[in-house]
């Protein structure tokens, strides 16, 4: 557990640093993958960056709103930088809505954009897993294994590292898929299914997950999400293969060099 890092005498919150680095690397990869497909990667980068800002502001407004009585006497203190005075749900909502509106206004709500974003989202998730490792959150059940970590008074499964390793493998798989000729939506659906499967596996070793009738809630949710995503992926691939049969003889490049004029906005 490493909640703070000392760098040149400054105390830096290691979990926050890991999450921010994951977010920025994810944005960088998204922009790069977009540029490879002759889309404007800068716009995707901006959407993520401004979405982050909107998310932070929204999270603070949400926190102040929920604790209005405390902030009413000193409203200016709502402007003080503090990562603990944030309401996460409000932040996610504001950030995602702002990013979607930004993409819509810039005519970037295309069917292939979620595919391009998925590997970046997985990198962001690795930042979250690393942040949880630094903070000692989402910890594992006790286990005496050669690779156990000592956390909260016991030797435990390093579930945060299991998740990190799984996400790296998923990222590699998605990057390989990105360079195959697949229908729009295939990469994002495969990514969702793989991450949900990872959740089912990793949460089996977690000590802090709520259970219903002896079953972990997140594992149940993971199974439902994985099955749904795999079914949708199957539908998408079968629709595409029947479409390809109808267009037999039409040779398409694996990676389009220009933006596909036939791509329709969502």
């Amino acid at each position: 557990m490493l909640p703070t890092l000392r760098v040149f005498g400054l105390s830096i919150q290691a979990p926050l640093l890991a999450i921010m680095v994951g977010f920025m690397l994810g944005l960088w990869l998204t922009a790069r993958l977009a540029n490879e497909r002759n889309l404007n990667g800068n716009l995707l980068f901006d959407a993520g960056f401004y979405g982050l800002l909107a998310g932070v502001i929204g999270a603070r407004i949400g926190y102040v709103f929920l604790n209005f009585q405390a902030y009413a006497r000193e409203p200016l203190s709502a402007l003080m930088p503090s990562i603990t005075a944030l309401q996460p749900e409000a932040g996610w909502f504001c950030g995602v809505v702002f990013a979607v509106i930004f993409l819509w206004r810039n005519k970037m709500l295309r069917r292939d954009v979620p595919d391009i974003m998925m590997p970046g989202v997985v990198i962001f998730a690795t930042g979250l897993a690393l942040g949880a490792f630094f903070n000692g959150d989402a910890f594992g059940i006790p286990a005496q294994l050669p690779w156990s970590i000592y956390l909260w008074g016991e030797w435990r499964h390093p579930v945060q590292l299991y998740e990190l390793a799984g996400l790296v493998l998923i990222l590699a798989a998605l990057l390989i898929m990105m360079h195959r000729r697949l229908p729009a939506g295939a990469v994002v659906l495969a990514g969702i299914a793989l991450v949900a499967c990872l959740r089912v596996f990793v949460d089996g070793f977690r000590a802090d997950v709520a259970t219903v009738f002896g079953l972990r809630v997140t594992q149940l949710a993971g199974v439902v999400i994985a099955v749904t995503a795999l079914w949708l992926l199957g539908e998408r691939l079968s629709t595409d293969s029947s479409g390809s049969t109808a267009q037999a003889g039409v040779d398409e490049p694996a990676l389009p060099k220009k933006a596909d004029p036939g791509s329709s906005p969502l």
Partner: peptide, 19 residues
Amino acid sequence: RDIIYGGPMTRPLIESKVT
């Protein structure tokens, strides 16, 4: 129930945590 690393905390922040 909560841990805050670093500071300074403002009065409203402490109050919100205490509430």
